[in-house]
Write a protein that binds this DNA or RNA. Structure first.
Length: 480
RNA sequence: GGCCCCAUCGUCUAGCGGUUAGGACGCUGGCCUCUCACGUCGGCAACACGGGUUCGAAUCCCGUUGGGGUCACCA
């Protein structure tokens, strides 16, 4: 029985990398008549938010990624949200404590920071120095008595090697001296990824762990944990990482990574899935256009190539065009109505321009920017983007900063964006109009528009960010 | 920097000892056509380097170089 899983962390927008890994997991489960589990890994209490969780699940559903077990559909191995599995982790931590495979660490984060700094200075491998590993029973009792906050660390053997077989690469081995005494339980009582992941995968009877390559170096820690518990580890499959054009790990700095971006821009789910499938995998007959079912019928690990694939929006666009072209005109209208031209959205737009048009035909002139992709900035717009007394560099950096602030918001609405913009002005020490006009122009391409906050709400987070980024690029060009 | 992974056109890739190194995106030229787009035909463009192994290496081994990842009480 094949059981696979993905464990997205609800700490931001639904990520294209999540969809990528999800796709391969789902394909593999389907091909083997197994189950595909969705587990929400929300053990980071400071960054996890339920809004993100909801968005991730709906974005995956929109794409057509379906799971057999998960927080929304339930299943026999629940709960499927790690924040609800606290007792399970504590119970297992207890096992490791009592069999001597883990120990309490009372070190302060100050000391750890110091340690890391020193290690970096001396240019030695960083890692925990084992300070608390040899505490006497009395010392431990004292700390517990004094209620010193502590974490639980994995006791990694000093000698020997830990190895595992990656289905795509063969044997990979690490010197144990190289492996850190990982924190297993944080001082807030929550498990770290490592503990939660291993415990859950075992309890949920996961047979194949298909995840991104960035996890490869922490796999030995996981192996050690399986050993410590006396469990059988799953089959490991580390998929290549999606890349930016410069080959670095795909990031929002250099690429649109939010699935919402692709939805808003009008990419079709089958096209996206098709494209993602081509990232590192090929059909045996070389076909480039294929459906999920075709992939299920033909998938094999042996056809995965390991060079990190650059995510190329141009090629995605071409593929999407293929799918769009095979629609009937009626279907195309349906797609348009589904999102970009939905009645609800049209109503919002209408509200904003009603008082500005005399004839219906004036509508497009006032509202085109709501429906377009990127906007172009003419000289007039460029001029308006630069408030008097501020340098191009300043305004560029301010818009960049705004982009980051918007990124923290689950959605952009008139209320929160006004708050955000005003707070930003305050922190900058700028007058509101110095900021609002550049933002208006950046986001709409024009000086004369419906009210800014409302417009931004209708444009949506993704379009706002995209244009802000576009404006930043234009301004940066102007600088040199 | 230590450790780990990776390495064919700019990009996605086929190739699993013997090929004129193939396809796709992009770029480009022609055709189609009232324009554009689509479509179609053609072109440019790659085995990182150095050693082995072998009758023979893009394919196997080693090294170099290059790229990436990772070194958190984030996942």
């Amino acid at each position: 029985m094949v059981r696979v899983r993905i464990g997205p962390s609800p700490t931001g927008d639904p990520h294209v990398g999540t969809a990528y890994i999800a796709l391969f997991n789902m394909i593999y489960a389907r091909q083997h008549g197994g189950q595909f589990v969705l587990r929400i890994e929300d053990t980071d209490q400071t960054r996890s938010r339920p809004e993100w969780e909801g968005m991730i699940m709906s974005a995956l559903k929109w794409l057509g990624i379906q799971w057999d077990e998960g927080p929304d559909v339930g299943g026999p191995h629940g709960p499927y949200r790690q924040s609800e599995r606290g007792p399970i982790y504590r119970e297992h931590a207890e096992i490791l404590l009592s069999n001597g495979r883990a120990y309490r660490c009372f070190c302060t984060s100050d000391r750890l920071d110091q340690l890391r700094k020193q290690q970096r200075q001396r240019n030695v491998a960083s890692g925990y120095d084992g300070h608390c590993r040899h505490l006497t029973d009395e010392e431990i009792a004292q700390h517990i008595q004094a209620e010193t906050p502590f974490v639980l660390r994995l006791k990694v053997p000093n000698e020997g090697v830990t190895k595992f077989v990656d289905r795509l690469r063969g044997e990979v081995s690490f010197d144990n001296g190289q492996i850190d005494d990982q924190v297993l339980l944080k001082s807030d009582g929550m498990p770290t990824y490592h503990l939660a992941n291993v415990v859950d995968d075992h309890l949920m009877e996961i047979t194949h762990v298909m995840r991104a390559e960035e996890w490869i170096t922490s796999t030995p820690k996981h192996i050690l944990l399986y050993e410590a518990f006396g469990w059988e580890p799953p089959v490991w499959i580390h998929m290549p990482l999606l890349r930016n054009a410069d080959k670095s790990k795909i990031s929002k700095r250099k690429n649109p990574v939010s699935l919402n971006y692709y939805k808003d821009a009008g990419f079709l789910p089958p096209a996206i899935l098709n494209y993602l499938a081509m990232m590192g995998w090929t059909m045996p007959d070389g076909r480039e256009k294929f459906l999920v079912d075709d992939m299920v019928a033909n998938f094999s690990f042996d056809r995965i190539s390991l060079g990190g694939p650059v995510f190329d929006i141009a090629k995605l666009s071409w593929l999407n065009g293929l799918y769009l072209r095979e629609c009937t005109p009626e279907q195309m209208v349906e797609h348009l109505r589904g999102h970009l031209f939905s009645d609800a959205r049209l109503v919002e737009v209408a509200k904003l321009v009603q008082e500005r048009v005399d004839k219906l035909e004036d509508f497009m002139e006032h509202t085109a920017f709501f429906f377009n992709g990127d906007v172009r900035y003419d000289d007039d717009a460029l001029h308006a983007m630069q408030p008097k007394g501020r340098t191009v560099k300043e305004i560029r950096e301010v818009l960049e900063g705004l982009c980051e602030r918007i990124d923290m918001l689950a959605e952009v609405n008139r209320t929160n964006i006004e708050q955000e913009l005003r707070a930003y002005c305050e922190s900058l020490g700028w007058k509101t109009k110095e900021l609002f006009m550049p933002v208006r122009v950046a986001v709409t391409g024009s000086k004369a528009t419906p009210p800014l906050f409302e417009s931004m709400e209708v444009l949506g987070k993704e379009r706002c960010r995209r244009r802000l980024r576009g404006a930043v690029a234009v301004l940066r060009n102007l600088e040199s």
